[in-house]
Every structure is written in structure tokens, then in C-alpha cells.
């Protein structure tokens, strides 16, 4: 078996800290597969993450890596990209990090169309702090801060990204590894704000509280809970509500923020 992906990991920082059965490792591997396929240089790529289980991924990856504060990965990444637009900038974030404390940064990153690829590890829960409800915990599911079941409606982060102006939006799951890697690769290839929701399992903090402690069963639930977008599009509306579409959900052309700023520099008579 070829293990060419290993050079992209900091071997001396492994093994990782995630629980047995966690989906974060699969998503991280998919990110690496996409980077390898896209041909990004390790010396010219910056991985920026927030705070939470998934955001620890940056520490294992052999690039310039920036483990920021809770929710703030996108503003840091915006600064990195604007200071040096030649760098490839990838953001790794979680559902709590991106859509709760970082929600405002998320929609404004989309709006500006900063050339970032944002991968949201969606495990529907705050794992690192022990299983509190996130804005992507499904209604009715239990969390330590929703012991009777969540009454909040969850965000559809993909719809949010599209509405806010992201120019590439896709979804996949930790079950569909190759597809997930392809979706991320599509984000790396496009210029502008690319958003990929990677649905993944958290057996420890989400599963155990919701009668799904077995990671394999959680992965099968991921498999059964989604459908390829082309097939999903043909479903009647009441059936659509039962599954998430996966695949490329939105793709459009719009000038990315650093390129747009080049026109400002030109108007001001400056040199980039």
C-alpha cells in the first residue's frame, strides 16, 4: 500500500489525541489527499484552525500551521491571505467553532469571497468540552446542555455559506472518503471562498448520549442519512427533508478578495 500521504504529517506529533472511532482522522486524511492531488507545496500552504477537537488537526500536519482562538480561524486566515496572496490558505474548523462563536466571521468570509478553503468537521456536538449542544446539533438530539433533547433548530451551514456569498459549497461525509477528498480538492482548485461540510461521527460525546455509541453504526447512519445531490434533487420535497444532499451544492465565478484589492492598489497608484 502506498503511503505517500505520510510526508504531509508531522510524524513526531502522532499518534493524534482523538478518541477511538472518531471521524476527525478520516476527514484530516481526506484534506491531505486533496492537497496531494492539488499539488500544493508544503512550504507554500498554511493550515489555520480554531479551537475544538477538529481544530487540533493543524498540529499534525506538516505545513505552516496556525491554531488560533475559538471561532477566529477565518479572520486570522483572512489576514494571512491578504498579507501574502501567494499562499494557499486552508481553514479547519468545527461546527461549534464555525457556526456559533465564529458565525459572524464565517458569513463575512463568504461575503468577501476571500480565497480560502474552509473544511467544517461537523460532528454535531462540542466534543472537546464533553458533549454540549452546538448550533448543528439536530433538534431533539441530546447533549449535556440539552439533557431533554435540543429544541434549537440546527443551521444548514452549506445553505448559510451559499446565501452569504461563498463561491464553492460542497458536502460529504467521513463514510465517503474518496468523495470527501474530491469535494475538498474542488475547493482547493477554485478561487474564492470554498466551503466543504464534512459530516463525521463523534461516538464519545454525541453517540453515547444518543443511543449510537458504536462508531461503525454511526458511520452507517452517515451513509444512510445522505444522498448524492443529483439523486436527491429528484426526490419529492417531503423525502428531501429526511436526507442531506452530498456533492457540489453551489459553484459560481466571482473575483476573490485579494484580486479585488489589487484593483484598489492600482487605483491608488501603488505597487503590489
Amino acid at each position: 500500500m502506498e503511503r505517500s500521504f505520510e510526508k504531509y504529517f508531522r510524524q513526531n506529533r502522532l499518534p493524534h489525541m482523538w478518541c477511538p472511532g472518531c471521524g476527525n482522522g478520516i476527514v484530516t486524511k481526506a484534506v491531505i489527499m486533496a492537497i496531494e492531488k492539488a499539488g500544493f507545496s508544503q512550504d507554500n500552504t498554511v493550515i489555520v484552525s480554531g479551537i475544538g477537537c477538529s481544530s487540533r488537526a493543524s498540529g499534525y500536519m506538516d505545513f505552516d500551521t496556525l491554531h488560533t482562538a475559538h471561532g477566529r480561524a477565518i479572520p486570522f486566515a483572512t489576514g494571512v491571505k491578504m498579507a501574502n496572496p501567494d499562499l494557499n490558505v486552508i481553514v479547519l474548523t468545527g461546527d461549534g467553532d464555525c457556526t456559533a462563536i465564529g458565525g459572524n466571521h464565517f458569513i463575512h468570509g463568504c461575503r468577501r469571497n476571500v480565497d480560502l478553503t474552509v473544511v467544517l468537521f461537523n460532528n454535531n456536538i462540542y466534543g472537546m468540552t464533553g458533549g454540549q449542544a452546538s448550533p448543528m446539533t439536530p433538534t431533539g438530539k441530546k447533549a449535556t446542555t440539552a439533557p431533554y433533547g435540543a429544541i434549537d433548530r440546527p443551521f444548514d451551514a452549506c445553505k448559510l455559506a451559499e446565501a452569504a456569498g461563498a463561491t464553492y459549497v460542497a458536502r460529504s461525509t467521513a463514510f465517503h472518503v474518496q468523495h470527501l477528498a474530491d469535494m475538498i480538492k474542488g475547493g482547493l482548485d477554485s478561487h474564492g471562498f470554498s466551503f466543504i461540510e464534512a459530516m463525521c461521527q463523534c461516538p464519545t460525546a454525541f453517540g453515547r448520549n444518543n443511543k449510537m455509541a458504536d462508531p461503525a453504526k454511526m458511520m452507517m447512519a452517515l451513509r444512510d442519512g445522505v444522498m448524492m445531490k443529483a439523486a436527491w434533487d429528484k426526490l419529492p420535497a417531503e423525502k428531501q427533508a429526511e436526507r442531506f444532499p452530498i456533492g457540489v451544492l453551489c459553484q459560481k465565478e466571482y473575483i476573490d478578495y485579494a484580486k479585488a484589492y489589487d484593483t484598489v492598489i492600482e487605483k491608488a497608484g501603488g505597487r503590489a
Binding site: P75, F76, V80, A83
Partner: peptide, 24 residues
């Protein structure tokens, strides 16, 4: 040849400044 970004809030402003600083 520098760059200015009006950020969405005060926290994001420092975040962007720190990211830019790390990028040189």
C-alpha cells in the same frame, strides 16, 4: 502596496492583523 480590510468586528480586526503579521 499594502492592504486594508474593514473587518466585521473588533475581534476579527485583531485576528486579521495577527494573521497578516505571521505572514510577514
Amino acid at each position: 502596496g499594502g492592504r486594508f480590510v474593514q473587518m466585521e468586528d473588533e475581534i476579527a480586526s485583531v485576528g486579521a492583523v495577527l494573521g497578516a503579521s505571521l505572514a510577514g
